[in-house]
Design a protein around this nucleic acid. Structure first.
Length: 130
RNA sequence: AAACAGGUUUGUUUCAUCGCUCUUUAUUUUAAGGGAGGAAAGUCCGGGCAACGCAGGGUAAUUUGCCACUUGAAAAAGUGGGUAUCCCAACAGGAAUGUUGAGAUAACAGAUAGUGUCACAGAAAACCAAGUAGCCUUCGCAGCAAUGUGAAGGUCAUAGUGAAAAUGUGAGGUAAGAGCUCACAUGUAUAGCUGGUAACAGUUAUAUAGGACAAACCUCUUAUGUUGUAAGGCCAUGUAAACCCUAAUUUUACUGCGACUCGUGGUAAUAACUUCGGUUAUAUUAGGGAGGGUAGGCUGCAUAGAUAAAUGAUGAAAGUUGUUUACCAAUUGGUAAACAAUACAGAACUCGGCUUAUAGAACCUGUUUUUAU
RNA sequence: GGUCCCGUAGCUCAGCUGGAUAGAGCAACAGCCUUCUAAGCUGUGGGCCAUUGGUUCGAAUCCAAUCGGGAUCA
């Protein structure tokens, strides 16, 4: 089992990001907000993800970097349940940090895992409808 | 010795697991190597580099600002000196103050080129000053007189101001006064001499007495072409050799028929066809107009290096500092354990300065307190 | 990565160029009016002029640095 997180798994296209902000659905689970959208792209992985820490919440660049790195680490280590649930469905993800305080690793891990669990349930229901 | 403040330098290490980015190698995931600072920050300055511009001169705009030397491509920095201001100490003096020494600070050219500003208060806030205060003279009137009052004139010594008052003190002089004259002192300008590389200092003569503000405009002096890597270069994408208008040209266009990569008839702004309702209307070149599309890759670009942006996460141990406890020692201290802290902060073309932020450690300087002599 | 602008009362803004009383509207509070409220009228309080230093007799204003907020570039 790989715990990699290379560039292919990240959401990098500006067009896709704009589309996500315009048409995506959202879930909040306090320190974080998740925006997701079903989409189509060519990749061996079923999801593309990105992580956002707004400049208005955290002024210093090094603190923003720290939080983003921890968020990325949580996603990297816990992405496999999500991938299994998705199967062939393709999806774009965006995690946004809403907190003003500097967050420790266990806090981030707990709330992000909750978000990803809810996401798996939602996607199953959608696939059944289609 | 302790505490505090300021300055300079430095600014943690190792292991395990799972990862990120770039380069090379391998070819589908294998190996090796590189991977954040003193400020990467602020963008306050100056270069490199790039595009455009460039006869010469001027104007505008911005900019430099005591002197010498050194470093530097330049901005700038360093060392030494000069001047001014502040503060401390010593000496002189009744005091004001002056001299000498140590230290700190200075955006430190020009206020005698010109314009402007100086509230309130005050007679007056600035070349040539100055009134219905005051002082003085003359004349008239009242009065025995002292004096009072009116007019004309002289004058700036005196004045409840103010941040700042027309150089200060003394003497002469005068009706009263006045640099009006003189002595001493202060300060400015010009010229000369002496010392010094110079800034400047000292001194002599002459002329004077001109308040502050240039971080108000300005003058002199120094320097600057403008814009910036989102510059610039190459490629792709795109309804696109597209649309509208004007002019010119043509085996060109439109159009009818046929045997349709061709032949032939008509037309050049009206023509051809027609089911009589209408339908179609061009190419090339030149000039102009209106609107749209793309916003992605490579390069620029680096012995760190991307383009939603890497340099990490978790766990363990050590180091440093502090607190508490226990033991040794008993002034400092040493050993062990537990707990806490371990900063400021994250490259985006690059280099050199400046500014700002910084736990702890080392060194230097200063202040205060305590102890000892 | 560059370039430029703005911070004044609880809110929206004047006053900065051209230096000497810190103001206006709304809001707040108190009173009048009204049976009561709203509206109206009268009054009151509220500001270290973003922060720090400098120039000046004197700084919201001039100068420098810092901290926030915003605009713009092809």
């Amino acid at each position: 089992m790989d715990f990699t997180f290379t560039k292919i798994e990240r959401l990098c296209s500006k067009k896709a990001i704009d589309d996500l902000f315009a048409n995506g659905k959202s879930k909040t689970q306090f320190p974080f907000k998740l925006i997701y959208k079903v989409s189509e792209f060519e990749s061996p992985f079923p999801a593309r993800a990105m992580f956002v820490v707004p400049k208005k919440k955290h002024k210093r660049a090094n603190k923003r970097n720290d939080i983003k790195r921890r968020m990325r680490e949580v996603y990297r280590l816990n992405k496999h349940p999500l991938y299994e649930s998705l199967k062939t469905q393709k999806i774009d993800l965006m995690f946004i940090c809403l907190s003003n305080e500097e967050l420790e690793y266990p806090v981030i891990e707990k709330s992000m895992l909750q978000l990803m669990e809810t996401l798996t349930r939602i996607n199953f229901s959608e696939t059944k409808k289609e």
